[in-house]
Amino acid sequence: MDNETRLGLYKTMVLSRSFEEAILRDYHADKKPIWDIGAGLIPGEMHLSAGQEPVAAGVCAHLTSDDAISSTHRPHHFAIAHGMDLRLLASEIFGRETGLGKGRGGHMHLFDPTIHFSCSGIVAEGYPPALGMAFAFQRQGKDSVAVAVTGEGGANQGAFHESLNLAALWKLPVVFVIEDNDWAISVPRDASTAIRSNAVRATSYGIRGIRIQDNSVEGVWDAAKTAIEKARAGEGPSLIEVHTVRLWGHFEGDAQAYRNDLDSLIDPIPAYANQLESDGVLSPEMVESIAQDAKSRVEDAFDFAKSSPLPSAAEVERYVFA
């Protein structure tokens, strides 16, 4: 892997983290002293992806805006890695008329047709629509692929199994991604899943499956390269499971009393910075300037969102039908 690619992966992860740190700040700023999940400039449930950036960065490095992503209730890292306009993303999260969904969607329901991005708030139910996107690409004679994302908890859903079988049967250009962050909200993987690796489940449907054990962005990048190239070449679907890490709660406000692993978590971003520094690809000055650059892009997006108008209540019925 060349240095430029490695730097690119790092920058993508930093941008995503920077965005979510800004959300963290603004989300909690006006929910004090009495916690009310529906209060403040960013109301509602907030599922942040900190720790899982290697999955999105490694996969999306091989995609163009013609490729589709069907993501989850925890979608920011994939949205950002796939090149979503930060202003439109932030505005939707702030519930503004300038947002992707004009304030009708929210952070679990991001739809951006310009980069073929969508997500679903229902566990594993983003998989089936990805089949259809891949089906359309196949029928339209394009070499685009669709990436479907779920968590390890989602891999126990019927939608997951039905989708693997149908994609394999019809040789659809899909890459199935599982973000195994060890926790289905409060239920550990050991208590939810009978096997150690979901790559085995891929094998049982006759498709390629791989498990990446160490949350390594370069490991994801390697696996995704193969899977996406094969999908583009008409060789059908693959599955990539990444053993990643959920650094923060399931949702903001989650006290995580159930968690026994908080002391042993490894943040993948400083870890990758260290690796790149020791390989001579990154310097402390570059770390600082990359962080500053990300921060200024994020603050621009947040300023834009906060200064944008809220949707008009008189227009609440608009967009039910085309």
Binding site: A68, S70, P128, L131, G132, M133, F135, E162, S163, L166
Partner: peptide, 27 residues
């Protein structure tokens, strides 16, 4: 190619229809 029998996997093929419609087909 245009008339497709599916497996008994209604969740998968309902979702497939939605995804294909989103990408410009008319299932």
């Amino acid at each position: 190619q245009r008339i497709l029998d599916t497996p008994i996997s209604e969740t998968a093929f309902m979702g497939l229809a939605t995804g294909a419609a989103v990408e410009g087909m008319r299932p």
